[in-house]
Design a binder for these strands. Structure first.
Length: 573
RNA sequence: CGGGGCGUAGCGCAGCCCGGUAGCGCGCCUGCUUUGGGAGCAGGAUGUCGGAGGUUCGAAUCCUCUCGCCCCGACCA
């Protein structure tokens, strides 16, 4: 393609609206433009990247035995009411109604629609297993859309759904999808890691997330450097420490701790490590129900674990008013001793502590040398905290490390959650009606493009991995003599004939402008043609990522590029 | 939804405190020169100052309301 005739509006300056790398660079490279918060147009260059990612996904999904279809974006409320998600999905579901006042929503995911299709069309175990997928625009009215394509309200997703007749077959299918995902992300040239994950709103039994490792990632994962174990922190189990019962306990004491409201204040004031302090968090767990959770001072509460333990979906910290009502003290002085009317949960880590420090349920007072069960009774013990770096791995004797990641894919083992609610059954070999065992599998296509930029860029712009680069090579005539123009045109046509995706910068711009735009756009190979090198009968080829430049005789350029592109497509595959 | 910030030319911004001609840089258009890392000179076009209401002789500027956007926290591909 000729740059002079292309719609690739690059920007010289950083746009004010973008802070995050991928967002900034995709805007500057002329790949996307914002229409509204979390809603973007894909310009020709951006769309080429999306299409390449989609092509890799299609190949691998087809290879794994999945069949592509296309479900409607608009779906009727009735289906969502059947599974209860019309209410449960909340404000994230974009709702609208037609001229007859019938309720519809814009699909945020398609379990309902695909399960409805299944129950109408599939009736025998002979038709199983069945895996269907689509690549389509999805809508989620995110609480806070941000970072350009990273978290949009409208985004492109590949979603797949599997239906199996028994557990073993479903597990096999799940594993097949898991493996297909590994191949897909490897082929896109990304560094990623599958991790154990929570099932969230989709629900189900087990799940893995595919994380592209990047410092700007929104997710925190823990991993064991010496085994395959890796998990989202919100999911990662914490190995309970051995409980210790010291020989002698010190007597409980009240101490004055004016204004020491945080663990940090307290540990500074009393000159103790935060791990000797125990915080008592009060959560609103029902309309008139408060639950207290004890967490060690240097640990973070994991609200997802607490929710799962309590079997509730909604968990918020109790309001300051509620705290005062229960403890007669402001936030910051809550403690388990004498905290009668609420249910008390404690993280396992508390069991290994003795003579620790807690709030005194009295303004500016804490208690020291507190011990359980001597001084208070715990209703339930459990794993209620966030895993963190330095925790023991559940798989080996190693200590866990943390890394940031961008969630680009998620596979779920759903079980019969949807098939039972919607009556998606089949007749087994004995003629018995059985609910299909389902799995669902998503890939954020547009997010994957953004993640690729996060992982492949430098101060000058994007450095696309070959398999998803919008173009494979870019010709830069940097001076404007006839010889340069003719050589450029000739190369452009010949590379085209060899099926190399090549962009010719035939604009009447100075060399500097072309260099900068090419670096910004991130085409893997730049073919630089100027009078200087032509005089030596050479053409310069620059590797965008490494910055390496080689000088080739003009007649060797085509062969060299062809070989290099093929090799990079293969290596990164 | 809570907290912070911002809406002025296509983009990046100044002007606002202290009311009185709407400005700068880049880009865009024309011409000439230039052409290996964001060219020079000359000429030119471009704005309902986010919107509504109010105060005032007069509002980008002051007041009220509203809409939108970005960033930080609770959701997710």
């Amino acid at each position: 393609m000729r740059l002079s005739q292309s719609f690739i509006p690059t920007m010289r300056q950083d746009p004010g609206e973008a802070e995050v790398t991928s967002h900034r660079l995709m805007l500057r490279a002329g790949m996307i433009r914002k229409v509204a918060a979390g809603i973007y147009s894909y310009l020709p260059l951006g769309l080429r990247v999306i299409r390449k990612i989609e092509a890799i996904i299609r190949e691998e999904m087809n290879r794994a035995g999945a069949q592509e279809l296309l479900l409607p974006i608009l779906s009727p409320a009735e289906l969502w009411k059947e599974t209860g998600r019309w209410d449960f999905y909340g404000k994230e579901l974009i709702r609208l109604h037609d001229r007859h006042e019938r309720d519809f929503c814009l699909g945020p995911t398609h379990e309902e629609v695909v399960t409805d299709l299944f129950r109408r069309e599939v009736s025998s175990y002979r038709q199983l297993p069945l895996t269907l997928y689509q690549i389509q625009t999805k809508f989620r009215d995110e609480i806070r859309p941000r970072f350009g394509l990273m978290r949009g309200r409208e985004f492109i997703m590949k979603d797949a759904y599997s239906f199996d007749q028994d557990e073993a077959s479903a597990q096999h299918n799940y594993q097949q999808m898991h493996d297909a995902y590994c191949r897909i992300f490897s082929r896109t040239g990304l560094q990623f890691r599958p991790v154990e994950a929570d099932t969230g709103l989709i629900g189900g039994i087990s799940s893995h997330e595919f994380m592209v490792l990047a410092n700007t990632g929104e997710e925190l994962i823990v991993f064991d450097p010496d085994s395959a174990y890796a998990a989202n922190v919100e999911r990662a189990e914490v190995v309970p420490p051995p409980t210790q019962t010291p020989e002698k306990l010190n007597p409980l004491e009240k101490v004055s701790t004016p204004n020491a409201k945080s663990v940090e204040d307290l540990s500074t004031l009393l000159k103790v490590d935060a791990n000797r302090v125990v915080k008592t968090l009060l959560y609103q767990t029902g309309e008139n129900e408060i639950t207290a959770v004890l967490i060690r001072g240097d640990h973070q509460a994991n609200e997802i674990k607490i929710q799962r333990f309590l079997g509730i979906h909604d968990l918020t910290l109790a309001s300051p008013d509620a705290v005062e009502r229960i403890t007669n003290a402001p936030v910051g002085f809550v403690g388990p001793v004498g905290l009668s009317p609420v249910r008390l949960l404690a993280d396992h880590a508390i069991g290994a502590l003795s003579d620790f420090i807690v709030g005194g349920n009295e303004t500016d007072v804490h208690l020291i040398n507190v011990n359980s069960p001597r001084d208070f009774a715990v209703d339930d013990w459990g794993d209620f905290r966030q895993a963190q770096a330095g925790d023991l791995s559940p798989n080996s004797d190693s200590r866990l490390q943390t890394a940031r990641g961008i969630e680009v894919g998620h596979v779920f083992m759903l079980g019969t959650k949807y098939s039972e609610k919607m009556g998606a059954t089949f007749l087994d070999a004995e003629g018995q009606s059985q609910p299909a065992i389902m799995g669902c599998y998503g890939i954020g296509v547009s997010r994957t493009a953004a993640a690729a930029v996060e992982q492949n860029h430098d101060e000058k712009g994007i450095c696309w991995p070959m398999p998803i680069a919008p173009f494979q090579a870019q010709i830069l005539p940097v001076t404007n003599s006839d010889a340069v123009r003719q050589t450029s045109e000739k190369l452009y046509h010949e590379l085209g004939k060899e099926n190399i995706e090549v962009l010719l910068d035939d604009r009447n711009e100075r060399g500097g402008v072309k260099f900068n735009d090419a670096d910004m756009i991130g085409t893997p190979y730049h073919i630089i043609i100027g009078d200087k090198s032509l005089a030596n009968n050479t053409i310069e080829v620059k590797d965008r990522k490494t910055g390496e430049k080689i000088h080739l005789p003009p007649d060797q350029v085509i062969g060299w590029i062809k070989e290099a592109v093929t090799r990079k497509l293969k290596i990164e595959a």
